[in-house]
Every structure is written in C-alpha cells, then in structure tokens.
Computed example of a mutant assay.
Amino acid sequence: MDDSSLADLLSQFGLSDKEIDTYLTLLDHGEAKASTVADDAGVSKRYVYSISEKLEERGFVTVDDHVVPTTIRANPPEEVIDTLSRNLDEMEPALADRYTRTAPADARFEVVKSRVTVLKRAAELIANADEEVTLSIPHDRLPELADELRAALDRGVLVLLVVSGVEPGPDLGLDGLASVARAWSQPMPTMLTADRQSGLVAPTEMITRSNAGKEAIAFGQQQLGPILVGSFLGNYWPMAEEVYAAEPTALPATYRDFRHAVLEAELHRRAGTPIRARVRGRLVGGEEESFEEFVGRVTDVRQGLLAPGNNSFPVENSFDIETEEGVHLAVGGLGAFVEDVEASEVTLELIE
C-alpha cells in the first residue's frame, strides 16, 4: 500500500492531513525528538507537541515528557489496530440504537421506542397520505396530529378516526378532523394506516404513559396495510360509537380510494340526492387487464362506514348500479370477489 492510500484510510479515522504526516514520520523513525519530527513533517515544533497530544489520546503514539528533550514514540501497529477495533466495537451498539430510532418512515419495518417518535411517525404518514387514513388514538393525544388531519381532509383524503379512552358525545372537537369519527370509552392500541400500504401499531400504555417501556412497530409493506385496515374496520370500528360525519362532498368528484366513493355515495343517498357512478374497472373473474367503463344510477349501498351499517360482513363496502340498458351490477373495490365489478376508479355525479 502506498503512502497516499494509507493516508486516505487514516483520514477515515478523523486524522487531519498534518496529523497523518506527523504520524507517518513517527512511524518511519519509531521514536524521535519533536524537533526531528517537525523538520521531517514540515511543521513547527510547537505544532508537533500539539498534534502529538491528540495522537496520544487516540492511542497512536506515546509522548515521553519526563526526559529532556521530549521524545515521541510511535506505538506498535498491532496496539493501534487493537485500540481502533475496540473503539469500533464499543461504538456499534450506540450506532445501531440510534439508527433504529431515526430510520426513515418508509422503511419496511422499524421498532419505535418512544411516544414522541410514534407521534412523529404518525404525523409524517398522515402528511404523506394521498387517498386514505385510518387512525385510532387516545383522545387526549389527538391535538398532536390535528394539523396533519385537517390538511389531509383539505387534500381530499378519506379519514376514518376512532378516539379512545373517552365517553362518546357530540362535544369532542372532531369537526374538521375526520370524514367519519367514532369514540370508545375503553383503551385501545394506537393504529394507523396510510393509503393501505404503510402504518404503525403502538400498545395503549406506550401512548398513554411516557415511560411505559413498550415498543411500537412502524412498517412500509404494502401486504400488511390491508390486514391492519381489516382489523381496524372489523374489530375496533364496530365497537366504537359514531360521533361525527362530514357533509356530502360536492359532485362531480373522482375517487381512486373505493371506500371513499362508497362513503360519499351513502352520504348522498341519505340526503336524498340521486347520483350516477362512472366506474373504471373489470368484471370479477375476467381478464386482469380487461378494464372498461360501467355507468349507471346508484340504486343501493352496502357499507359499515356510517352508522347504522347494513353490510353483511365487517369489511364489505360496495354499491349497486343500474345501467341505461337495465343491467344491475354490484361494484366492489380492489380485490372484490363477491361483487360483479372490481373498480379501480369511481366518478360520482349528480343526476339532473
């Protein structure tokens, strides 16, 4: 290895160019007076003393100031390497711990060890959502995510919210924070999904007590999102009581999130507004890429998003249309298997 390559490696351990020159000179001499090192390294004797003290602290050299003149001795390379290795071994756990706590929000999995970080991750996920957010959170922690929830609604995101640990009532301050909000007096885990492909789960104690010693899991795996949404809608949503629902959105409006389209269709149905759906999708059981448009008047909605629900199983959310030809079709979202049509995009419009 030439001097240039050796100098590059030494610089990775925090040595400056002058420190490297001084250390390499000492290696050549083994032991030398400060004046000798200064002459060979092209620095002042005072600077050699200063650099030598720093090199001694790092284990590269030994300074013998008990003799006159002071001498500086390069430590055996095996001792230097051993010292550097020990330092790296000691540093690894701290680096690993810090990396875990600051891993990016879109990492596939992240262990989160503090309430502050859980709420920070939740805010990031909500802020980046384009279509749908499902969230359960203790009511007294909700203000910490309120700005992100308002902004999500302003972007047209569907927000399904459960606040826990509070008695259901109309005065919980949820207006403008959700499309539909429910409350449950019992504690429940903090659960969040964003666009069905990323989210987090935190134990109740972790959010309600800052020193609970619990850990949360954040994920960015598309396969896990629908599972968590299914648990949210199937297990927790039905247990909570509806306390807020937004007004119907002005039409026409287009939705790539099918649950959002179902919610709006039901809101307009309850308001007595006749609506038409333009569905881009494919026949269930048909060719994977055989997309076409299905257009018809919305005749019925089956859903569990608004109370009272009328779906036959917890995650069923669908609607029926009647085409101009009198054909009746049941429309479901991505992965539909009991409906006639699997929709990828829905446009709702008023029937004049």
Rank of each mutant, 00 (worst) to 15 (best):
G234N: 03
G286W: 12
E292L: 13
D140L: 09
G225S: 08
L161F: 07
T249M: 06
Y99R: 13
S4G: 08
V159K: 05
L350P: 03
I275W: 04
E292M: 13
L26P: 02
S198H: 12
S50A: 08
L192T: 00
A178D: 02
I81H: 10
G156N: 02
L348A: 01
S318D: 12
L306H: 02
E342Y: 07
L6K: 04
P189V: 15
D130I: 08
I126N: 07
M206S: 15
V61M: 10
T102F: 14
Y23V: 05
A336V: 00
F109E: 09
L95N: 10
L15N: 08
G14S: 07
A41F: 02
L329H: 04
K54F: 00
V37E: 00
T83L: 11
G309Q: 08
V301S: 04
R270Q: 02
A152Q: 04
E324R: 15
S185H: 14
F13K: 10
A246M: 09
M188A: 15
A271K: 05
P104H: 03
G42E: 00
E148M: 05
D28F: 09
R282K: 15
G230V: 06
A41C: 05
S198Y: 10
F294L: 06
P170G: 05
S44A: 08
E242D: 02
A41I: 02
T193I: 12
R46M: 02
N310V: 09
E78T: 12
F232T: 04
P143G: 01
M191E: 14
E349N: 04
R141Q: 12
S344G: 09
S114T: 11
E352W: 06
G333P: 06
L125A: 09
T102I: 13
K113A: 11
T117H: 12
F319I: 03
T208I: 13
A178R: 04
V327Q: 15
D195R: 09
K113H: 10
V315Q: 11
T25W: 05
M1T: 08
A105W: 08
E90T: 06
V48M: 04
V301F: 04
D147G: 06
R280I: 12
A96R: 14
A202H: 06
P170C: 06
E345Y: 04
E57L: 11
T100G: 15
V133P: 05
S312V: 14
A194Q: 09
E247G: 05
A183H: 07
T299M: 02
N317F: 08
H268C: 04
D147L: 07
A277H: 03
I20V: 12
I20T: 11
A105M: 07
A41W: 00
H66T: 11
D320R: 08
V43C: 00
F319Q: 03
A146E: 03
V279P: 01
E349K: 07
G332I: 11
G199D: 08
G285E: 13
G285Q: 13
A146Y: 01
R280L: 15
P69C: 02
G225E: 06
A265N: 01
T254L: 02
P189H: 15
E264M: 03
P226T: 08
E241K: 12
L228V: 14
I321W: 03
V327P: 01
T70G: 03
E90N: 12
V201M: 14
F337N: 12
M239S: 07
S136A: 13
